[in-house]
Amino acid sequence: MTSAEPGEPLVVATGVRKSYGSNLVLDGVNLTVNRGEVACVIGPSGSGKSTLLRCINHLENIDAGTIRVGGELVGYRRRGRALRELSERDAARARRHIGMVFQSFDLFPHLTALENVMSGPRFVLRRPVDQSRTQALALLDSVGLADRTQHYPAQLSGGQQQRVAIARALAMQPALMLFDEPTSALDPELVGEVLDVMRDLANSGMTMIVVTHELRFAQDVADRISFMDGGTVLEEGPPEQVLTAPQHPRTKAFLTRYT
């Protein structure tokens, strides 16, 4: 699906608009993320960050604009000058290469940690059980949960659940990982273990878009930070620029509240 070389744009969103009824959530968002980059999206609640993320893998549809991942539209097909929404079946195929991690973990509670990680390869890619298991065990080991493979989500801490969720997304060997406030639901002492896994992932060269309130993490790991407010990207740039020398007054106001 992806022909992009490292450094080339992998995700390109242009003029993305979306509203829920009369409530305009995304008001012409432009965002480009290059292959291998970690882009952090920050901004106040209700600024449209999470909605943007869900539009990128077409969990939500958009009203106007385009979003391309690896040069291809996700969930849409060009029809003359317009875009036609694909069936949910076809959209599912396009989502396979985009991993997503949610604030609420959303592990499958009736499956063990191992079965959760195997669920994508087994049920979507129809890979054989033993091959999926070997891969899942390796992934759980890489997120530090080799000793929790047979546990059900209810038996795991929030931090452990989120690490299983990351492994579950990685099992699909995605070209892009989306993180929707992955540590916001965690107890403070559990945030570190999840951020460590994400940091490792970033160092391995994974392209990541991370919606987060963890500004220190953003400062350490992000190649680029986008500040969103009112449904648009108001300011973006390298972390040192956006976090330490913000230009837009709304960015300044947001940062003083957060630090």
């Binding site: 893998n57 949910e88 079946r89 985009i98 959303d106 592990l107 049920f123 979507v124 997304a169």
Partner: peptide
């Protein structure tokens, strides 16, 4: 969240 997570994995 369950349906959302399943869709995000690429399940039909």
């Amino acid at each position: 969240g369950q349906a959302r997570a399943a869709r995000a994995l690429g399940m039909t």
